[in-house]
Write a protein that binds this DNA or RNA. Structure first.
Lengths: 259, 259
DNA sequence: GGAACGTGTTTACGGCGTAAGCAACGGGTA
DNA sequence: TACCCGTTGCTTACGCCGTAAACACGTTCC
């Protein structure tokens, strides 16, 4: 069409040339074939590197040294790819030995380990985490960021076997997921990761003086506001949550003390 | 001018036909011109009705009885439109008399009113709320869902004038936003609103039996898991947060009691 | 040798966001 | 009244997007 430069050769292999360059192997062109897992892993890598918005099927293909359409052999479409990314990250957490190390050291220990495990993956993949937080889960009561039935079962098991009533365990699950989601979503977004365009070569840290004139308190506290106490706050909120659950547990044990 | 079709008000869903009808009107076709606010309000309406993913510039145009490109007179692009939507919703909250009614009844009262106000808009615009939660704010320390300097100033003012130290006020701000975001994001997503495709005529509530076989606890508790205690949980978590802040306030008043 | 299959490529289509130029109306000025 | 010009919305056009369909090329098994 627009390729009127030069004679109409039958060798316009643009993508193929790139592919060849990428694999850069001798005459025997053994390229390990793609599979779903490799595609998903590459997608995580890509999102971490360039942000979620930059991920398109064609670019994903290029990232893997392949045409975009090749991906459709392994995922049914873009949505499936994104779902797969979420699933893979959640599984990565499930395989984390730190989390499962000592499930019988009490439920509080377990919830601590789990929370820190989730925080670890949020920090490891800050651009992926909003996906985990936002994508609608399979069942509406499987709440992000613990988006799998395995985790849900594991969580409920840990609590009910330690004396939580059914209702208390479910309430604890809800409080726990809310806490994790709120805290970690804000933490990863605060760490200046969003990079909406493909690259943000110049930081834009103005807004400091002009527009803050009308907000004296904000201006005065802005150094405090911008420094990062996420870790300590996470710890403190988690501690507080666990104490609250402890209280719930105690009260759910006796039938009704009085009011 | 023989084809004077009906009055060109009241926006139906078919954009093209509507546009044609409007244009075909006789020499005196007084149509109230668009303006930014009307565009943004229509966008909120559209998102509430069809979900965020369904919003495209052309469809937005059709919804307003106008070609898609007409919108670019009032917003610089799609991102700006979305930012404007967020801003408008946040302003809607700021104008809510329920919130500002009694700022001098104590900081706890204020935080209660504010929290309920935010919850009200989250529930009123469940499909818009994730936008508020997710879109990167102007400054990184302006945290969703209180995404405006006005709110931030107001919040900090309420606390510092009631005895909070600077550090305690900022910590309270962080804890408060985390709580709101986590709780409300999960609440609106649980209310089955997402509708990723334009319409979801058949609910797909299976998954009940087959795949739950491996998760006995989940199955047993699934009735508990699926009923909606959001309001009560919100109340309880908020109460708990306020108590925690009260404790912080008390302790920040004496220099250091001991440990 | 040849059929079947798995993997990746090519081509094509409609929809997207948006840049640029154009037409029509309304309100100032004469 | 006549003109003029800024505002508003429309038309056209471009490149990128997701993806359906047909195809080319190994590999594997009879």
């Amino acid at each position: 069409m627009a390729d009127d430069v030069g004679p109409p050769r039958a060798v316009p292999d643009d993508g193929a040339a790139y592919t060849r360059a990428v694999r850069a192997s001798p005459p025997g062109p053994v390229r390990t074939p793609l599979d779903r897992r490799r595609v998903l892993a590459a997608a995580i890598e890509f999102i971490d590197a360039h942000g979620l918005e930059a991920l398109t099927m064609r670019r994903m293909g290029a990232h893997l040294g392949v045409e975009g359409m090749a991906l459709y052999r392994h995922v049914t479409g873009r949505d499936d790819l994104l779902d797969g990314v979420v699933e893979l990250v959640v599984d990565e957490l499930y395989g984390d030995p730190e989390v499962h190390l000592a499930p019988q050291h009490g439920w509080q220990d377990y919830l601590q380990r789990l929370a820190h495990g989730v925080r670890r993956i949020a920090i490891a993949h800050p651009a992926v985490f909003p996906l985990i937080a936002t994508r609608p889960p399979a069942a509406p009561w499987v709440r992000p960021p613990l988006r799998s039935l395995r985790w849900l079962e594991s969580f409920l098991d840990a609590l009910t076997t330690h004396g939580f009533s059914d209702g208390a365990a479910v309430a604890a699950y809800r409080a726990y997921t809310s806490f994790l989601l709120g805290h970690l979503l804000l933490e990863v977004s605060q760490r200046g990761v969003p990079i909406s365009p493909l690259d943000d070569p110049e930081g834009t840290p103005q807004l400091e003086d002009r527009s803050l004139a009308a907000y004296p308190l904000v201006r005065r506290l802005s150094p405090l506001l911008s420094d990062d106490e996420s870790a300590a706050e996470f710890e403190e909120s988690l501690e507080n949550l666990l104490e609250r659950l402890q209280r719930v547990l105690r009260e759910s044990r006796r039938p009704r003390p009085a009011t």
